[in-house]
Simulated scan of single mutants.
Amino acid sequence: MAQLWLHLCICFQIPGFCTNLLLSQTPGHILAQTNNKTEIRCELKKEHTGVYWYRWSQERQNFEFLVFSNPLGKATYGTNISQDKFSVQGASSHSSYSLRISQLRDSDNGTYYCSISQSFQLLLGSGTHLGVVDVLPLPPKTTEAPLSTKPVRRVTKSKAVSKKGACSPLVWVPLATSVLVLLLSLVPTAYRLYRLRRRLWLRIHRQ
């Protein structure tokens, strides 16, 4: 047992030294509200005799044993650890365990580790940092860029024409062209009327 704690201290002094791929711990971070509950999951990829749960408190500089759960579901709690606050739920296949923490308090802040014992060593999970706050922060609001209030000066086509004056080529050239086309279209009509009038005059005088 002394060798286990000695190895545990070495692992703790060098963060991540004993974490390995045999334990998959999720989630990595939890932010929860006071008086609520939360859950940490640990998946095991190797045969084991049980799962240990520990908590590291940065404020108290303390690595605390919480609870041990064997494959039969029997739990052994650490000193002054409440069974109503901490509970362990294991899957029927014994491949995953969940640590449930209820009635969260500020004192529950810390990093939680699941662990198994292999060859006189404690193999630690990657750790889950738990932060307990009185009020959860609101999600950031999306802000839109303010619309420009500077007036945009627009010049319409009619105003642009009026500024050039009534004698502008843009005004009289199309007008003169239209008048000329109209006059040319009236010439054949006038000629037909003239011939019709002459025929009527000749017919009347012959009678």
Rank of each mutant, 00 (worst) to 15 (best):
Y113L: 15
Y113A: 09
Y113I: 14
Y113E: 04
Y113R: 06
C114S: 07
C114Q: 08
S115H: 11
I116W: 10
S117F: 14
S117I: 15
S117R: 13
Q118F: 14
Q118P: 00
Q118S: 10
Q118T: 10
S119Q: 15
S119C: 14
S119K: 15
S119T: 10
F120R: 08
F120E: 11
F120L: 09
Q121L: 09
Q121V: 02
Q121R: 13
Q121T: 12
L122V: 07
L122G: 06
L122R: 13
L122D: 09
L123R: 12
L123W: 13
L123C: 10
L123H: 08
L123K: 12
L123V: 11
L123Q: 11
L123A: 02
L124Q: 12
G125H: 07
G125K: 01
G125L: 05
G125C: 11
S126I: 03
S126E: 12
S126D: 12
S126C: 01
G127L: 02
G127D: 13
G127T: 08
G127S: 00
G127K: 03
G127Q: 02
T128Y: 06
T128L: 08
H129P: 11
H129N: 10
H129A: 05
H129V: 11
L130R: 03
L130F: 10
L130Q: 07
G131F: 07
G131C: 00
G131D: 08
G131W: 02
G131V: 05
V132I: 00
V132D: 01
V132S: 00
V133I: 09
V133P: 01
D134Y: 01
D134R: 08
D134Q: 03
D134A: 03
L136D: 05
L136P: 13
L136H: 07
L136Y: 05
P137G: 03
P137E: 01
P137A: 00
P137V: 05
L138C: 00
L138K: 12
L138A: 04
L138N: 09
P139M: 00
P139S: 02
P140V: 04
P140A: 02
P140Y: 05
P140S: 04
K141V: 00
K141C: 00
K141N: 00
T142Y: 08
T142C: 03
T142W: 05
T143W: 01
T143Y: 04
T143R: 11
E144K: 12
E144C: 07
E144Q: 08
A145V: 10
P146Q: 02
P146I: 02
P146M: 01
P146S: 03
L147D: 09
L147Y: 15
L147G: 13
L147V: 12
L147A: 04
S148T: 14
S148C: 15
S148D: 12
S148M: 13
T149N: 11
K150W: 15
K150P: 05
K150V: 15
K150A: 07
K150F: 14
P151R: 09
P151E: 13
P151K: 08
P151N: 09
P151A: 03
P151L: 07
V152M: 09
V152N: 04
V152A: 10
V152K: 14
V152Y: 11
R153C: 06
R153N: 13
R153F: 14
R154W: 11
R154P: 10
R154F: 05
R154Y: 02
R154T: 15
R154Q: 14
V155K: 06
T156Q: 05
T156K: 01
T156F: 03
T156N: 02
T156V: 00
T156M: 04
T156Y: 11
T156C: 05
S158M: 15
S158G: 05
S158H: 13
